[in-house]
Amino acid sequence: MKAAAAALPLIALLGFNSGCGKPTGQAKQPEAVMDFHQLFSENCSACHGVSGQKGAGPRLNDPLYLALVTKQDLYNVIEKGRPGTPMPAFAQSSGGPLAEKQIQAIVDGIEKDWAKPVNLQGAALPVYSIAKAPQGDAKRGQAQYMRNCMMCHGFGSFKGMAGPITDPNYLALASDQYLRTTAIVGRIDWGMPDWRHRIPGHVMNDQDISDVVAWLASQRPKGYMMAENQSTNNSSSNRSGPGSEREPKQ
């Protein structure tokens, strides 16, 4: 009994001092969430990986990638998505869940947490945007592919250990910009080297990259033109049902 009597004020005191039951934050409107980590984990981590890498989608926790793109590029992609690819639009103006300032918070967070100075070891950083890059030549691109990519991605009956990228269905879901970006920065998290480290002693230049992308684009079957260039593919006109609210608006 005495022990119980002594425990009562002690428990009460502990409770008040630590206040472990005291509510800390208040439940917020989803538009009011501004914390980068929460925003990223709720909206981006599913495809881009828990800490921005080792996801199925492009690696964002990548100083090289962040050196390549501007903050405006990131903003635009999050805002409008990449029609025809699995990247949906996130801005409320495009039917997504996020307010403008939240997108800005994500962009700022990505830059703040993951951007670092990159040592290019003397190589020039290629141009990011497909629009500003030199015109590619598909014929030369095939030769570049054989030289730089074939060892891992295979050709014809030779299956590389990383799997083919000439698969028409893969190409139908990968935009030219995605191909270019991946050709430049690689996927270090999954073992794909960047443009400087494919062949010892050889660094791909801007033209080489444009050529490879042009050749890959030429492997895409007709009627499978990327939505970024065309409107969208043929089945999108009668989209309805579950998931349609996340579809990019046309």
Partner: peptide, 27 residues
């Protein structure tokens, strides 16, 4: 779909097409 990442071990040793498939699964 946007908050539960694909487990890393279910992405290892997948081809580019299969990786895109994982993205379709999420998207």
């Amino acid at each position: 779909w946007s908050g539960q990442s694909v487990p890393v071990d279910l992405l290892q040793h997948r081809t580019p097409l299969e990786m895109r498939g994982a993205l379709v699964l999420q998207n």
